[in-house]
């Protein structure tokens, strides 16, 4: 067993599913922003909520955070996801994406939030697809909630919904990097441990 509740095989299986989803997310993000994105890193850890917050590097810069969640009965998993874009570095990409869709998009009130929500929704769906397909279920994500602030603050708001700071969570993190552009994208996915423990790892599990 790893930590208090997932076997090595279960952890490897979930990591593999997240990695497969991350590659799909990078592909969809490339389509929207017309910049090539790739997966820079992908990880999964069992840690306490306090540990997840402490593990974030100190960074006071402002990010656009898009929060989506899934809940039974629409989904088999209780899950929180947070997708982060650095505000300043991402602005030009969001503008390009908005222009590519329609000049009318830029006339929307809060068009930056609307574009961030739209893109995060599409790449978030790509991230969870591999998991849903593998578990033979549908994971229906909520509509996106967009806010801005430093990374730790945005993550703390999301983790507040999960439980107390001592609770153990399964914390997946994916970093996407843009080729030749300063923008980045961090995708965080949080499961309650009990939710994942229920899933059996197939004897052979190629993704």
């Amino acid at each position: 067993m790893i930590g208090p509740g997932l076997s090595l095989e279960q952890k490897a299986f979930v990591a593999q599913l997240i990695e497969a989803g991350a590659a799909n997310s990078a592909q969809r993000l490339s389509h929207y922003t017309k910049v090539s994105w790739s997966v820079a890193s992908s990880s999964i850890e069992l840690m306490t909520i306090a540990g997840a917050l402490d593990a974030l590097p100190v960074d006071a810069s402002t990010f656009l955070g898009v929060h989506m969640r899934s809940r039974p009965p629409q989904s088999p998993l209780t899950m929180e996801s947070l997708i982060l874009f650095p505000s300043t570095a991402t602005q030009s990409l969001l503008e390009a994406a908005a222009r590519a869709i329609s000049p009318r998009t830029a006339a929307l009130p809060n068009w930056v939030d609307a574009m961030a929500g739209e893109i995060a929704n599409v790449i978030g769906q790509a991230l969870v697809k591999a998991m849903a397909d593998r578990f033979g279920s549908s994971i229906i994500l909520s509509v996106p909630f967009v806010s801005s602030g430093p990374k730790p603050l945005l993550l703390a708001k999301v983790l507040d919904r999960v439980g107390s700071k001592r609770e153990t969570i399964v914390f997946g993190q994916v970093e996407l990097a843009a080729q030749g552009h300063p923008a980045s994208c961090t995708m965080m996915i949080v499961f309650e441990l009990n939710q994942l423990r229920r899933f059996q790892v197939p004897p052979q599990h190629p993704i």
Partner: peptide, 12 residues
């Protein structure tokens, strides 16, 4: 019309 193209959703 959706970003959710999971197998189960498609089947439904």
């Amino acid at each position: 019309v959706t970003g959710n193209d999971q197998k189960k959703v498609l089947e439904q």
